[in-house]
Design a protein around this nucleic acid. Sequence first.
DNA 1: ACGGCGAATCCGTTACATCA
DNA 2: GTGATGTAACGGATTCGCCG
Length: 209
Amino acid sequence: MTTNMKAQTQVDEQMLLLSQYYPGIYDQLVPEQEEVVKPRRRRKKNKTDGNSSGFRKRKLSDEQVTLLEENFGNEHKLESERKDRLAAELGLDPRQVAVWFQNRRARWKSKKLEEEYNKLKTEHDSTVLEKCRLETEVLKLKEQLSETEKEINKLVERSDGISSTSPSSSFSMEAMGPPFLGGFGMEGLENVFYLPENNYIQGMDWLNI
DNA sequence: ACGGCGAATCCGTTACATCA
DNA sequence: GTGATGTAACGGATTCGCCG
């Protein structure tokens, strides 16, 4: 297989997964192609096999399946030598062994796909949950900010009133000391706003933050 | 490098067996 | 009897390795 073919195969596999997991996105990426419906040849019913020994399709015995499963566990691919050996060991036609491996690979692949889907779904769900949590937190913080701004405006207005009637008794933030933020329901926001070492801001400088 | 060929494999489907 | 489900088997397409 050439490098290009390998790359194309990888792309095809990725697109296949994409189409399975995110059909909407896949449809956007790959516009629907004109459908070419080829009539499949219908398989004819056949109740007997070549040697007329009864039903053509018989269930494999538990022992046969066990041995086949053991072999499949060791290696999913079936080399011709191993196929013949297994067939002889199980008293089956090599073609039957080949078909069993083919079907088993298909089952294995579909199971893998399902597991991968469940894994992605779990990841997706927890991400959505985390997004909701963060959005709620943002709303809460916005509300707190709005409340704080209202309080600040009130204080500023009061301060303006006082200073206009009595200039000597100017409003001092220093007088409020460190518990200032706590008074506005800002507990726990020390890490959000930068505060100087003495834990409060001189005068009205904090308005510039 | 290219095309033809046969074997192996994949994919989708059908037919049959089994069970609730 | 019947529908759902599991699986052996099939047909066609694709892939791969070999050869002339």
